[in-house]
Nucleic acid binder design. Structure first.
Lengths: 217, 217
DNA sequence: TAGATTGTTAATCGATTAACAATC
DNA sequence: TAGATTGTTAATCGATTAACAATC
């Protein structure tokens, strides 16, 4: 079965569609047209229809899209229709913040453990999720069918840890360290980088630019 | 002075160039060609030269780019050559994690206070950054020249809080709530959204897709 | 049936890559 | 000078938008 290649731009938008559809569901909206959704999301109706048609015809002429159905279908595309076991490496503030996000669990991402090297917090738990010591990692990953590891370590330790994780069977890394892990791991490992420092710099650029715009008026 | 419009795609890459140049600096590298940088970053040399030339000719034929100079120039473009006062709204784990990132400060983002509604943590401090109560916000923003607010509140409270912030003179919001604040605030407010849930869904998509690829081989 | 709205093709727009003259 | 590498123009590629026939 040779799946069509879907562009990154489309994938980037899918979770946003999913979020808006979820909100519509909560509001009890049953159907929506690409035109209405376009108004709400501030993207063109044409783009919405093109994006969705990459995956099949979810709509109906003259009617639009059934919100529930479209929501579920996008969920399936994103792999949210099953449970993904996740561990968090680094039980600092960020690691703990992630562990506390109950909304991830509602989307199927189940945090099964945190890991840290600090013996002082060994055995403690957050929302019932226990903090383990890093040396237990290999055994734990194998025993608990861990697919995803969120990596909230300083850059210096992140690369070596990523190697350990991948070596023990982790398939995907949600990387918060300021380094491009995808360039340092085998091609078949899924890496999603969250570079907060870079996000803040883009904000800064926009802030700086907007100010000089104002002066020019 | 009519500045040329720079595409979002270019801006998105700038912080990454900045990071790589910073690493080269640390390694004591003095000069680099677009070709060498291309190898390291896995983008085409052509793209690097095009991107940089949006802002001026930073290189020299036959030589390449002076690392220090290019680093500083990109820093200026991103607005990292001056201090930006920042407050963090929400002193939960995520807010505290952000307050603990000393690297932001090195780029010129100075966290001057955290804010929360929980009286139990009033007056406590993180790295010397004090936690204030939300009702002190208007006065504080005006008295401390706050430009940026990092918003780490649940969606339900985020929109109302964003209004308060903007009303009191905050120019830019670093938004961690699961909602598109840019669509809900005046056009001239800079909003940078960090939607972690969506990031995790993209990871999930790639994980799901890669797996079905493997089966097909 | 008439009206609405999709699915899809074609046109446009923008971003990336290639090529090479300019020049250090 | 010869070699290297930029800055920049032109070519290609891909993504977005427009248009409309199909059809519910």
């Amino acid at each position: 079965m040779d799946e069509k290649w879907i562009s990154k731009a489309v994938i980037k938008r899918l979770p946003r569609y999913y979020r808006y559809l979820g909100e519509l569901l909560e509001d009890g909206v049953e159907r929506i047209s690409s035109g209405e959704l376009s108004d709400r999301m501030k993207v063109t109706a044409s783009q919405i229809r093109q994006d969705l048609n990459n995956f099949g015809g979810f709509g109906q002429q003259g009617y639009g899209y059934n919100v529930r159905h479209l929501y579920d279908e996008i969920g399936k595309i994103l792999g949210l229709d099953r449970i993904h076991n996740m561990i968090i490496i680094g039980a600092g503030n960020l690691g703990q913040a992630l562990a506390n996000y109950t909304s991830f669990e509602r989307s199927g991402f189940k945090t099964v453990a945190l890991f840290d090297i600090d013996p002082a917090i060994k055995g403690k738990s957050i929302r019932g999720i226990e903090i383990h010591m890093t040396d237990e990692l290999p055994e734990f990953i194998k025993a608990n069918n861990v697919e995803i590891a969120a990596l909230t370590l300083p850059k210096a330790e992140a690369v070596a840890m990523a190697d350990v994780l991948v070596h023990n069977g982790v398939k995907a890394i949600w990387n918060f360290a300021h380094t491009d892990l995808n360039l340092k791991l085998p091609q078949d490992v899924v890496v999603e980088n969250v570079h907060l420092a870079e996000s803040l710099m883009r904000l800064s650029y926009n802030l700086t630019t907007r100010e000089s715009d104002r002066k020019n008026k």
